[in-house]
Amino acid sequence: MAFLEVSNITRRFGGLVALNAVSFEVEKGEILGIIGPNGAGKTTLFGVISGFIPPSSGNVVYDGESIIGVSPDRLVRRGLMRSFQIVQSFADMTTLDVVTTAALTRRPMREAIDYAAQALLRVGLGGKEHKTPATLSLQDKKLLELAKCIATDPRCILLDEVMAGLTMAETAAPIAIIEELNKQGVTIVMVEHVMPVIMRLAQRMVVINFGEKIAQGTPDEIIKDQRVVDAYFGDHLDA
């Protein structure tokens, strides 16, 4: 049985079908990339897996147990962590405070502060412990999302566009962190628009369009897949 099994997930918002019977599996320790055009349903999919959005039907099995109806904070304590595409801000807390809160999921107070400081150092935010997240640059905000993930000691993380808006040079730091986490055994599912990044990181990819899975395979297979090319560039110009 796979580490994370998404089976037949459907999610409707009123008449709109955001996800239609999407299924895929993630093996322990792999990096799975999810791609698809804007509005394909990727963020909704992450919302369902991470417990924020209840699915209309279907099932998600994580580490051998169904996690439908389990609250996001309990999933975090079971090692399933997500980052947000739109960086979440905390108005009145420092970056250290925010990451400390994340570290508190598994550690007592004093250890949590040290561990949070280490996590910030590890993502390259050392020296910015006492800034508020709102004052950080976009790149640093994305790194903060990663620091929050690291601080909870996750076994599986869902990364929602952690590279979006960064220049190629700026993606180097997050890429290195993700590779390192994966080397330590953390399973990673990432939604990403920056193709060179996801082609390099992902071992397997799933393509979603209009709420349906249209393809899956290795990055090499995916870029040759006609359905994927059509989804991104349109099959006919009159469409």
Binding site: F52, R77, M93, K148
Partner: peptide
């Protein structure tokens, strides 16, 4: 404090 600043993000870090 995390709940005050951002409930959804608080939940996402295990609160």
């Amino acid at each position: 404090r995390t709940i005050r600043d951002n409930e959804k993000a608080a939940q996402a870090i295990g609160v």
